[in-house]
């Protein structure tokens, strides 16, 4: 039995902090959950915190890239925060540089990026 990764909402931002060992099925469910929650909540930003994630392989890397692309289509920006240095080195060597994925070193910086983006948009609702 696998657990879903919780998706939290703070203002216009959805926050996902991955604290579990990622099994492929969990990764796919998270991708679907996020797309649904963006539409349901009208969120304009998504932060995925991978501070606790020890490895990002091509499957998880693809999920990050796909999630970023899906959320862009749903009018939300994704920022991946907290990547460990060893994970960054490994990903690049693996051949995945996650070109389309915005990253920030910390959760705070990630939220800053999303807040700045919001002020450049016309007021919503």
């Amino acid at each position: 039995m696998t657990e879903r990764v919780p998706v939290l909402k703070i203002g216009d931002v959805l926050l996902v902090s991955i604290q579990v060992e990622l099994e492929d099925q969990v990764v796919l469910e998270l991708q679907d959950d996020l797309a649904a929650r963006i539409v349901e909540s009208g969120a304009t930003g998504v932060v995925i915190d991978i501070t606790a994630v020890e490895i990002v392989d091509s499957f998880v890397g693809r999920m990050l890239a796909t999630t970023a692309a899906i959320s862009r289509m749903l009018d939300a920006q994704t920022v991946v925060v907290g990547m460990r240095p060893a994970v960054a080195i490994t990903l690049v060597e693996l051949g995945l540089s996650l070109g389309g994925v915005r990253t920030a070193l910390t959760l705070e910086k990630g939220l800053d990026i999303l807040a700045r983006r919001d002020t450049t948009r016309p007021a919503q609702r």
Binding site: E54, I55, V56, D57, R84, P85, A86, V87, I89, T90, E93, L94
Partner: peptide, 8 residues
Amino acid sequence: VDQTKLVT
């Protein structure tokens, strides 16, 4: 770094 590479 090597641990991370091997596990990946």
